[in-house]
Design a protein around this nucleic acid. Structure first.
Length: 557
RNA sequence: AGGGGCGUAGCCAAGUCGGUAAGGCAACGGACUUUGACUCCGUCAUGCGUUGGUUCGAGUCCAGCCGCCCCUGCCA
């Protein structure tokens, strides 16, 4: 695999591994796994987990498995397993031949359950779901033991087999662990291990009508695969005693893999739970899981984010146990930093204002040479046509400019990037008083690269009218207008930022015809953009990945 | 309330034997600039939830208090 350059510095999980390696607990072996449930698309929070698990294996010369936690066929689909594999690969990680499914272990898990019954550690319970809930007790009161708790082993074995054989309707009985109904940890009050559920499984089809629960299948899957460090998120902390129970109870797996919990990623201006992301998709608030505004891996990819930037981000946010919300600006910083030296520059005018150079010959066209990236001259130069009629950005001209405005003003001068210094001689307006055209003169002595020493304060980008390529530019902004979209009681769906997508008919320099879907550029003075798959030869479409930092916008406030 | 966790700057986060608070993002000054970008320089915790205690010395040890998160799915 390509070895991602990781910024994972030390964290408490690596400290634990260092100690285990020092004591020889796992014989210097480090084996992690990334265990998604294939019931939705991966998001940037999963990227944190992927980078942690695969990155940790890389750091210690160990291995990381990809394992689908597919124990609930009513929610899982192959569409999701495919997208998950694509996303993990795109992020730059490789599971080699270690692609597993919890469903690979259905037979072993069933046998293990029978052993549990034989050992008197599990029983078939006929209580209804509602009754089980009542028997469970509350946070402060102990639960009551099920009347089926002391069923004879032989009867349990028989009933469990008949559950498997489909002799009972869905929900009629469950297999439960026999632990402690008085435990202060509710997860230990005889948790359900198997339920009857007639659902078509994406891999095992209709072979089974009983399916294991996560709390049972997960620790054993880890044990079967020889996982040493089983990393998961904080909400599973209270499940750890059950994890340990499942692995230890029959004494088969030593040393036991250790479950370690860390805080999941939260980001400002967006939501992260699969449930909420799904709601956005299903309610049509976004165009799909890969809508460029979504914090999904597929959304970020379509937006134009690079795997390098996402990995860098995951390395910078750290790994700890405190609940936290990371500033979205850090993610944006990471793409800018990645793309700055890599992305070729292009000039695009998003809101065109016509400029006519009155002293420039009518039919003359010059081919100007402009560097592709001032941060890296090895990226070379390109030829950009220049002529008498041009377009500049509307916001680069002001009739009554505020102080410190460095752009074009009546009678003022500005440099056209890579071309000449021009002076605004006349402002043409329409009947409503809108500025529709600027009549300017250019100074032939100031051609870029000619050695001219004349300086002006402002430089502005432009496109030549005769060669301008019409394109669509999609300007994306935060999915939600506030840092914490979940705050308050108003439904978060109704809070989607109405300006999160603004599509503009723009003009771009002709070099852009070469852009292929996924190509990334910096549109000078605007930001980083990538060609969207919607692009056609007739009309390229560009997504704004992120804007450039804009200190002028701050001054204006 | 029972159990399990967590509290270091606006945000994230180092801080391993107690020895006098890393780094990044953001922000704010300034230099440079044919991208108001990039880059560079500088500023940004006498303070580590809080109150006491131990100690020559406490973010680190002890006790109490406060706040926040998770757990009562036949979800993961």
């Amino acid at each position: 695999m390509s070895t991602p350059e990781h910024h994972i510095s030390g964290n408490f999980i690596h400290d634990i591994i260092d100690k285990d390696n020092a004591s020889g607990k796992y014989g210097q072996r480090v084996h992690t796994r990334f265990p998604p449930e294939p019931n939705g698309y991966l998001h940037i929070g999963h990227a944190k987990s992927i980078c942690l698990n695969f990155g940790t294996a890389l750091k210690y010369g160990g291995k990381c498995n990809l394992r689908f936690d597919d124990t609930n066929p009513s929610k899982e689909e192959t569409e999701y397993v495919e997208s998950i594999m694509e996303d993990v690969r795109w992020l730059g990680f490789d599971w080699d031949d270690r692609l597993f499914y919890a469903s690979d272990y259905f037979d072993k898990l069933y046998d293990y359950a029978c052993d549990l019954i034989l050992a008197g550690k599990a029983y078939v319970c006929d209580l209804s779901a509602e009754q089980i809930r009542q028997y469970r007790g509350t946070l402060t009161e102990p639960g009551k033991e099920s009347p089926y708790r002391n069923r004879p082993v032989a009867e349990n074995l028989d009933l469990f087999e008949r559950m498997k054989n489909g002799e009972f309707p869905d929900g009629a009985r469950v297999l439960r662990a026999k632990i402690d109904m008085a435990s202060p940890n509710l997860n230990m009050r005889d948790p359900v291990l198997y339920r009857i559920m007639r659902a078509h499984h994406h891999r095992t089809g209709d072979a089974w009508c009983i399916y294991p629960m996560y709390d049972y299948a997960h620790p054993l899957s880890d044990a079967y695969e020889g996982i040493t460090h089983s990393i998961c998120t904080l909400e599973f902390e209270a499940h750890r005693p059950l994890y340990d129970w499942c692995v230890d109870i029959l004494g088969e797996f030593k040393p036991r893999p250790v479950q370690i919990e860390f805080a999941r990623l939260n980001l400002t201006y967006t939501v992260m739970s699969k449930r909420k992301l799904r709601a956005l998709v299903e309610n049509g608030r976004v165009a799909g899981w890969d809508d460029p505004r979504m914090p999904t891996i597929s959304g970020l990819r379509r937006r134009g984010y690079t795997p390098e930037a996402i990995r860098d981000f995951c390395g910078r946010i750290g790994v700890a146990k405190a609940d936290s919300v990371v500033d979205y600006a850090l993610l944006e910083h990471c793409v800018r930093e990645d793309l700055g030296p890599k992305a070729p520059r292009l000039m695009a005018v998003l809101r065109p204002l016509k400029v006519v150079l009155t002293n420039y010959p009518e039919d003359k066209i010059e081919a100007l040479t402009i560097e592709n990236n001032p941060e890296d001259e090895t990226l070379g130069t390109r030829s950009v046509p220049f002529g008498r009629v041009l377009h500049i950005e509307q916001e680069d001209f002001m009739e009554n400019p505020p102080p410190k405005y460095f752009r074009l003003t009546p009678g003022g001068e500005v440099r056209l990037k890579g071309a000449y210094i021009i002076k605004c001689e006349e402002v043409v307006k329409d009947a409503d008083g809108n500025v529709v055209e600027l009549r300017c003169t250019y100074d032939p002595e100031t051609k870029s690269g000619s050695g001219s020493t004349r300086k002006v304060k402002g430089t502005v980008h432009w496109v030549a009218d005769a060669y301008a390529l019409p394109c669509e530019v999609r300007l994306y902004d935060h999915l939600f207008p506030t840092e914490d979209p979940e705050a308050g009681d108003e439904d978060f769906l109704s809070r989607v930022n109405p300006d999160s997508l603004v599509a503009l008919a723009a003009l771009i320099e002709p070099f852009a015809v070469n852009a292929k879907s996924g190509d990334r550029f910096q549109f000078i003075r605007h930001g980083y953009f990538s060609a969207d798959p919607d692009s056609t030869f007739e009309k390229p479409v560009f997504n704004r990945i992120v804007g450039l930092k804009d200190s002028w916008a701050k001054i204006q406030k």
